[in-house]
């Protein structure tokens, strides 16, 4: 079990996975009242705070690379007290389960894509990120953050929407906004996505933990077509020339399932990470 499930999961719900625990989707998580105090937005600007802390640490890679590596390692080990937002890769089927659990679900523009490529998403045909929970009702308070507005969706519309991005080749990452409050399902790719990039390029784990699944190829069923190779955003898949089959490095695999959903012969299966002793602790 990973530390997020241990801290925020409930064995009664969703196999103990934190993002399938209704408590992490509840209104009470969004605003936490302390006795004798006025209600304050919980982690009132978690994105901003996390961004600034990340920025300070990231700056050190230029000034003191050794210190930088140390601080990243420390942040990774801090787990529940981590200064960083929690994020975890999830496969499509689990994104569907979240879309049924969360309310409301809305599509919105992706802040990472705006930043990294200047990509403007002005309407529901262009939005590429998914916002979850009561915070979405207040989007009009931050017009610059929710540039272009938001589009509320029914659970079925949300599933169709997630499937659309899955087909295009985006990785679903469940994101928190303050503690374990689930705030969104991002549709991500490298290098635009800040969370994927921080992990793959700089080893910052908290914002992009691996999913509870891991991809495995059935060599008998694999035709060697190579469709899966171009789907992998984590560099875990190669075409093995010797065997003329796909080769997945399961230690690099994040368990997003993009290869599985695209395989024309059904040769890729997602296995329970914890069923494999060598991978059970690889998050």
């Amino acid at each position: 079990m990973n530390w997020v499930d241990e801290a925020f999961g409930d064995p009664e719900y969703g196999e103990g996975r934190w993002y399938l625990n209704p408590k992490n989707h509840s209104r009470q998580m969004y605003k936490i009242k302390k006795t004798g105090q006025k209600a304050a937005a919980y982690g009132s600007d978690p994105e901003g705070t996390s961004g600034r802390m990340m920025g300070e640490i990231m700056q050190k890679r230029f000034t003191d690379p050794e210190k930088f590596r140390e601080e990243v390692k420390e942040a990774n080990e801090m787990t529940t007290k981590s200064p960083f937002q929690i994020g975890q890769v999830i496969p499509l089927q689990e994104a569907f389960r979240v879309a049924e659990l969360a309310y409301p679900v809305a599509s919105m523009s992706c802040i990472c894509r705006i930043g990294a490529r200047g990509q403007e998403e002005r309407n529901e045909h262009e939005y590429s990120c998914t916002g979850l929970g009561v915070g979405m009702f207040k989007w009009e308070r931050w017009p610059e953050r929710y540039k272009g507005g938001v589009n509320f969706m029914s659970p079925d519309e949300a599933k169709e929407w997630l499937l659309k991005w899955n087909k295009k080749g985006m990785v679903h990452i469940i994101m928190t906004f303050g503690g374990s409050y689930v705030g969104g399902i991002c549709n991500c790719d490298y290098p635009d996505c800040g969370m994927i990039r921080n992990r793959v390029d700089y080893g910052v784990e908290t914002g992009c933990l691996k999913s509870p699944w891991v991809a495995a190829v059935d060599y008998d069923a694999c035709s060697g077509c190579g469709v899966c190779v171009q789907r992998c955003q984590f560099g875990a898949i190669k075409f093995e020339v010797t065997t003329e089959k796909t080769n997945i490095d399961q230690f690099k695999c994040f368990g997003c399932g993009l290869c599985e959903t695209a395989c024309p012969t059904g040769a890729i299966e997602l296995l329970d990470r914890e069923s494999l002793p060598g991978l059970a602790e690889v998050w």
Binding site: G115, A116, R117, G118, P191
Partner: peptide, 10 residues
């Protein structure tokens, strides 16, 4: 932003 092969800018 869109030309950079390494996505250096933001």
């Amino acid at each position: 932003l869109q030309a950079c092969l390494q996505s250096v800018f933001s």
